[in-house]
């Protein structure tokens, strides 16, 4: 057998297959993409899309909602989606099957990560696109490289954290709980839903929590690239740096702890009960 692995074609196939599988489950696509969109529509409906007069010209409030929600959608598409999908596939024995083939395991996981990044890209583009066309959001070409870099670092970070989540969650029934109980509270202290919140009175400890975890740094770095107040090119190296540290942590946990076989007895309570009934 040829020692060299055809990495690119294999990676491409894996990524494409993961993508197909994702888009063919409407409910998953809805939660990842649809929910943040609904929130954008709701925010505008509830809080209005007022025009702020400033020295920077006419700015709509949606200018601040849309990037925050795009970041939220991107984090769902990677962290939540990958964490849940991988642990589900492990419970079903699909990962064990994969492990029995000569496919290098890292290529499988890289395919999962890349597909998450792609889904996040679609979500972000749709979110910002709707912002631009429906709510008069402005996008400045000069800041797009910064937006792209923030997006890339952010989605890779959250994708790796998604793999780490699946590594820590023992079963598919544990994964959604862990995912939601981490990402949702964090979203409220991470400038995701309230991008104008910087100046408001946020308790110090909440600020600290926000600053420790990567979501706020994703939101702020992406938000700066979309903000009318920032100066081009708007690269936010500090925020990117914190995310890179979290990417390393996620990668490390995934590398040390990721298991491919279903964990016996860890699946849902129902399965445990069924097992007990079968044995006793």
């Amino acid at each position: 057998m040829n020692e060299r692995v055809p990495v690119i074609p294999m990676l491409w196939r894996q990524t494409r297959a993961q993508n197909r599988a994702f888009w063919r489950v409407p409910i998953g696509a809805f939660f990842t993409l649809g929910l943040p969109l609904i929130m954008l529509v709701l925010f505008v409906a509830l809080f209005g899309n007022d025009t702020l007069d400033s020295t920077y010209g006419n700015i709509k409030t949606a200018q601040f909602y849309a990037p925050g929600l795009a970041v939220f959608a991107a984090a769902s598409a990677t962290y939540t989606n990958i964490g849940m999908n991988l642990s589900m596939r492990r419970d079903e024995g699909i990962l064990k099957r994969v492990r029995g083939t000569p496919l290098p395991p890292w290529i499988y996981l890289a395919g999962v990560v890349l597909s998450g990044v792609w889904i996040a890209l679609v979500s972000t583009v749709v979110m910002m696109g709707i912002g631009v066309f429906a709510y008069d959001v402005n996008i400045e070409a000069a800041k797009m490289p910064a937006a792209a870099l923030s997006f890339l670092v952010g989605t890779i970070t959250f994708a790796l954290l998604g793999v780490a989540l699946a590594a820590v969650a023992k079963s598919a029934s544990a994964a959604p709980g862990i995912a939601n109980s981490t990402i949702l509270p964090l979203a409220f202290v991470s400038q995701v839903f309230i991008s104008l919140g910087e100046s408001r009175d946020v308790p110090g400890w909440l600020n600290l929590v926000g600053n420790i975890f990567p979501l706020k740094h994703f939101a702020l770095s992406f938000g700066q690239a979309m903000s009318p107040f920032s100066k081009a090119p708007a690269f936010e190296w500090g925020h990117l740096g914190v995310m890179a540290i979290w990417a390393a942590i996620g990668g490390l946990v995934a590398w040390r702890k990721f298991g491919w076989d279903p964990v016996p007895g860890a699946s849902s309570r129902r399965a445990r009960r069924a097992n007990r009934a079968a044995v006793g």
Partner: peptide
Amino acid sequence: RKMRDRFGIVLQSSGIDREL
């Protein structure tokens, strides 16, 4: 990898990617 390239494995029970 070299070994698995020569194996064909049918497990007692394991899922298949349902959506494909």
